[in-house]
Amino acid sequence: MNKEIVCITCPRGCIMKVTQEKDDLGKISFQVTGNFCKKGETFAINELTSPMRTICSTVKTDFKDVPVLPCRVSADIPKDKIFDVMAEINKVVITEKIKRNDIIIKNVLGLGVDVICTSDMLN
């Protein structure tokens, strides 16, 4: 199997070719070309096996001057969980002055990543 994948890891945006091969024992391996760095290779293989994405969004607060506070997931999550995680983020209302990197939702949906605050703007 051959697939062309554009790397989204950095602004360079390498266009890579991934070839999936199965050896005699049925073991699957990947050949990646066109990547500038190692991160590209990892990204390309992940794209074929279990694509991962990040989410940046906002959470609602009770503070008049800062009606929403920016947040993101602490590490990439499976691509097909994006809207499920967004639904969780949308349920939150911040009532206390939290700081950058403070955890807003711990282990969101059991994915092993947290939703964290990305700004000190409440302080």
Binding site: T58, V59, V93
Partner: peptide
Amino acid sequence: GETKGGALH
């Protein structure tokens, strides 16, 4: 309206 718990949620 509000994005969170607002118009579309």
